[in-house]
C-alpha cells in the first residue's frame, strides 16, 4: 500500500500548492472580487489538506464555514464597496505588515518544527504495539476505538486501518468539546453571540428614519 500513500503525498503537494498559490494571488491581485474568489480557493485547499489528514469533519466544516459562508460574505461585501473598478489601493503600512507576517510565520514554523508530534511510535500500550507489528485495524463505535489484530467479519461497527487518528473523529470531537473543553466551548459561543448582537447594533438605523419599520410592517 505504500504506493497508494505516495498518491496521497502527491495530493498533499497539490493541495498545498493550491493553498499557497491562491494565497499569493489574494495578496497581489488588484481586483478585490478576484481576490475574494482566490481566497475561497485557498480555503478549499486547506479543506482538502484536512481530508488528506483523515480529519473529514474538520475538512467539511472548513469548506462549509470558510468557503461556503465567509468567502461568500466577503464577495458579497465587495459588491457593495464603491469605486470597485479602481481596485484596492496599496496599504500605507506595507513594510510593517510584511514584517509582522514574516515574524508570525517564523514563530509558527519554529513551533511546528520543535513540537514533539505524537505518532504511532509513541504508542506504549503493548497490545497496540503487538497488533501493529502484524498489521492492525481500529474498531470504533463512537467515542472510543478498539485496536485489534484482525477485523471483525460480521460486525456493523466502523472498521478502519489506523492512520494516526481516531476513526470516528466527529464523535470524538463532540465528546471532547462537551467533556474536556466545555468552558472554552461555552466562552466561544458567548463571544459569538456578543459579536452577533454588536453587528446588529451597528446595522440598526437611527431611530429618526422609520423606513425599516415600514418595510417590516408591509412584510
Amino acid at each position: 500500500m505504500m504506493e497508494v500513500s505516495s498518491l496521497t503525498t502527491f495530493a498533499f503537494w497539490l493541495a498545498s500548492a493550491m493553498t499557497l498559490g491562491l494565497a499569493v494571488v489574494v495578496v497581489t491581485q488588484k481586483d478585490v472580487f478576484r481576490a475574494a474568489i482566490a481566497l475561497a480557493g485557498s480555503f478549499l485547499g486547506v479543506g482538502i489538506l484536512y481530508f488528506i489528514l483523515s480529519a473529514e469533519f474538520v475538512g467539511v466544516v472548513q469548506i462549509l464555514v470558510y468557503v461556503g459562508a465567509i468567502s461568500v460574505l466577503m464577495a458579497f461585501a465587495v459588491m457593495f464597496i464603491q469605486d470597485i473598478a479602481s481596485g484596492s489601493r496599496p496599504s500605507q503600512g506595507r513594510v510593517i505588515g510584511a514584517t509582522a507576517a514574516a515574524l508570525i510565520f517564523a514563530a509558527l514554523a519554529f513551533t511546528a518544527y520543535n513540537t514533539e508530534w505524537s505518532s504511532i511510535d509513541d504508542i506504549t500500550d503493548p497490545v497496540a504495539v503487538a497488533a501493529m507489528t502484524e498489521g492492525y485495524v481500529e474498531v470504533g463505535t463512537g467515542d472510543y476505538a478498539l485496536i485489534s489484530g484482525e477485523a471483525p467479519t460480521d460486525s456493523n461497527e466502523v472498521v478502519s486501518e489506523n492512520r494516526g487518528v481516531l476513526v470516528d473523529s466527529t464523535s470524538a470531537l463532540g465528546v471532547m468539546l462537551i467533556r474536556e473543553y466545555m468552558l472554552a466551548f461555552e466562552i466561544i459561543g458567548l463571544l459569538l453571540v456578543a459579536a452577533l448582537i454588536g453587528g446588529l447594533l451597528l446595522m440598526r438605523n437611527p431611530p429618526s428614519s422609520s423606513k425599516t419599520e415600514k418595510g417590516d410592517a408591509s412584510a
Binding site: 475561497a40 469533519f57 467539511v60 466544516v61 461556503g68 461568500v72
Partner: peptide, 20 residues
C-alpha cells in the same frame, strides 16, 4: 462518516459560483 455534512458543505459552494 460525515456524509450529511459533506452534502451541506458542497452545496453551499454553489452560491460562490453564482456570485462569481
Amino acid at each position: 462518516n460525515i456524509g450529511v455534512l459533506f452534502i451541506m458543505a458542497i452545496t453551499s459552494l454553489t452560491t460562490l459560483s453564482v456570485l462569481t
